[in-house]
Design a protein around this nucleic acid. Structure first.
Lengths: 195, 195
DNA sequence: AGCCGATATTGAACGGCGTTCAAAACAGTG
DNA sequence: CACTGTTTTGAACGCCGTTCAATATCGGCT
């Protein structure tokens, strides 16, 4: 058995990530197993270790894709008129989360083992998301001093993450009947303005 | 082998939770295994299933304890003068998280399997935490309308959870050099005032 | 065409996991 | 002392991530 050459390594990686995304969207992190992904793309488990260092690396790549997709939708949402941009971002964020809550939850539930630092590309992806938001919200932020903007945007993102995480895990509904989205608008309104 | 009667079931439960807490504090959710807990308390794995329905139930109980401990510290922190209460709560929160970050991260990383709803005692514990905060912050909230208070407090908690989660998983440091605590003060300041 | 070195792919194997359950060991009662 | 009822055990099951020697296929060479 070898060298089927049906697909290039890049194709295989894409196939594996697509399969992993399907499983994650349907069953969350618990169902995401090497053997399941391998079976879904028609290869043996060992093959995945030619494409990724470990299951953790695969999941990290999946989360990177998920964040990139969110980024795309946010960019599109920020194209409207500047006044309503913060609110549009919040709505796009919750639209995205509500569309595939289990896939989204993988971002929070997964942790690299040990002291494992996150790779550079992941860090850059996150920074890009923040920078994009700072730029998109520049009209809303108006006369804010330069050094106050990034912390506020970071805090805003963390708050939205907290809300979506609690919402997705069912814990938010235990303490609030208000929909997560409206709490998101509330927070962004207070932290940034115009949310 | 049986009926050693060394300990009552309640004692055993407490021992198991203590062992689980030690493991979680040292290694996070990944190291938290039935066999490890059992070995740590000097019993066979099967015995734990007389005390808890499943490992998930054990972890849920552990998280319940962790939240209760946080609650105790928050109550103590809110005893000071009303003006600085919001800030004191934020500091107590981050003190708690920073003392045992891996134990804290278990709260976010663990999810009940399937559609599994959370038990009533968990829900009540969470509600109690929120209600306590609403009451403690009553002086700060001043003339807020009654129906606006709870949503704001819930949003504040979610924001703090988001910050601590990103901080504990190492993702916050990737996009911000400001310490998590200061972002916490920022958010609470904006959402509640006086943070 | 036939061969060969290189390599992508396999699948069995290992240790560990959560969970179950029949058997066993004990405490308490009469 | 025997019997009952319960606690505790540990082997067993099916799953997991991961490794690696064996193997089947490819591209290039003669």
């Amino acid at each position: 058995m070898a060298r089927r050459n049906d697909h290039t390594p890049d194709e295989l990686r894409a196939m594996a990530l697509a399969a992993a995304r399907e499983i994650a969207a349907a069953e969350g992190l618990r169902g995401l197993a090497v053997r399941r992904v391998a079976e879904k793309i028609g290869y043996a488990p060992g093959t995945l270790y030619n494409l990724f260092d470990s299951l953790d690396a695969l999941i990290l790549a999946l989360n990177g894709e998920t964040l990139a997709r969110l980024g795309m939708e946010l960019v599109r949402a920020a194209e409207g008129n500047p006044a309503g941009r913060a609110a549009a971002l919040v709505d796009a964020y919750f639209d995205f989360v509500e569309r595939q809550p289990l896939l989204w939850s993988v971002i929070f539930e997964h942790r690299m083992p040990g002291e494992g630092d996150l790779p550079a590309w992941y860090s850059e992806g996150l920074s890009g998301l923040i920078d994009g938001t700072v730029a998109a919200l520049a009209p809303v932020l108006g006369d804010w001093p330069e050094e106050d903007r990034r912390p506020a945007v970071v805090a805003m993102w963390a708050a939205l993450h907290g809300l979506s995480m609690l919402a997705v895990s069912g814990k938010l509904a235990l303490v609030s009947d208000a929909p997560p989205r409206s709490l998101g608008h509330l927070v962004v309104n207070r932290v940034i303005g115009g949310g």
